[in-house]
């Protein structure tokens, strides 16, 4: 039993990382209807910027994190302005291909940095090595930090969407772009803001991942897990993305422990198949239809 809970908790913490990436993914999808396949690469860039500032430049941890998160956010916003804004009105498929291309370019760019490409690295934090005990369960402090940080970020997001003018405007745009324009919302600024926030949140995911897993230039593939996580949650639901991500992490962790080798890699996709068979709209699918 203790072993089971142990696995569940470590699953939750990796699931939190998936959840954050999925949150960024869904945020962009809701605000701009763009399926962003470059989201994993944004996470990778965030993680490596963190690595550069913390390990190579030896900046204080908090300062390094702030710079890495802001830089990734700005990079994401810039990608939207330069590459995706001209695509407004083009077929969804064309836009999707642009994001795949951007993902490849980001990966290639990372490979050109000698300090990044040569090694798989890990960021050590002051927490590394210490543990948190909950009764008989032992959690590494890094894993616990991931869970706590995710909880804080998700709460922040909730407050942003419910309480702030800009948050309401973002919701409005995702529900009726036309009506939002009639209210005076500049929908294009909202797109940029969505990418900015998604960049920030994936950078956080990358930074949180760095102490608990190795980071390497190809870690963007991990970001693709955000897509099954989003699908499980209903694809356009922010709470769904978080629940989907955590569920995915737990399944993977349990599959890795109890099932033969290889199952943990496909657990995500088996889970997607099961969820979609039982509930095609996803766990949190929004199903209110427009009334005439």
């Amino acid at each position: 039993m203790v072993q089971f809970l142990q696995q569940v908790i470590s699953g939750v913490s990796i699931g939190c990382v998936y959840a954050l990436i999925a949150l960024g993914f869904v945020l962009i999808y809701k605000a701009t209807e763009t399926v962003n396949f470059a989201i994993g690469e944004l996470m990778m860039i965030g993680a490596f910027l963190g690595f550069t500032f913390i390990v190579i430049w030896s900046l204080p941890l908090w300062l390094a994190a702030i710079i890495a998160i802001s830089a990734t956010a700005l990079l994401a916003a810039m990608l939207e302005r330069v590459f995706l804004r001209p695509m407004v009105g083009e077929p969804a498929f064309a836009i999707l291909v642009v994001t795949i291309g951007l993902g490849f370019c980001l990966r290639a760019a990372a490979l050109m940095v000698p300090e990044w490409s040569s090694e798989t690295v890990r960021i050590f934090t002051p927490l590394s090595g210490s543990v948190v005990r909950l009764g008989p369960i032992v959690i590494s402090a890094d894993h616990a930090a991931v869970i706590v940080a995710t909880a804080l970020i998700v709460t922040g997001f909730f407050v942003f969407f419910k309480r702030t003018r800009m948050g309401l405007a973002m919701q409005a745009v995702s529900q009726s772009q036309l009506a939002a324009t009639y209210m005076g919302v500049r929908t294009r600024s909202v797109s940029t803001l969505a990418w900015l926030l998604a960049g920030a949140i994936t950078a956080v995911a990358g930074l949180l991942l760095a102490p608990i897993a190795f980071i390497h230039v190809n870690m963007g593939v991990l970001g693709l897990k955000a897509i099954p996580a989003a699908i499980i949650g209903g694809f356009s639901s922010l709470p769904g993305a978080i629940v989907g991500g955590i569920l995915l992490g737990v399944c993977e962790s349990l599959a890795g422990f109890y099932l033969p080798a290889g199952f943990s890699e496909v657990a995500a996709y088996i889970l997607v198949l099961v969820v979609l068979t039982i509930r095609p709209e996803g766990l949190f699918g929004e199903t209110i239809h427009k009334r005439v």
């Binding site: 003018r165 309401l168 405007a169 919701q171 409005a172 529900q175 009726s176 036309l178 009506a179 939002a180 009639y182 209210m183 005076g184 919302v185 929004e286 209110i288 427009k290 005439v292």
Partner: peptide, 25 residues
């Protein structure tokens, strides 16, 4: 101000939030 065809309310926002959106500017 425009009351669009088919109303175009924000379906997942509350009634109050919908009204508040009207005062966005």
């Amino acid at each position: 101000s425009h009351v669009p065809e088919g109303r175009e309310i924000f379906p997942f926002m509350t009634v109050r939030e919908n009204i508040l959106m009207g005062a966005y500017l």
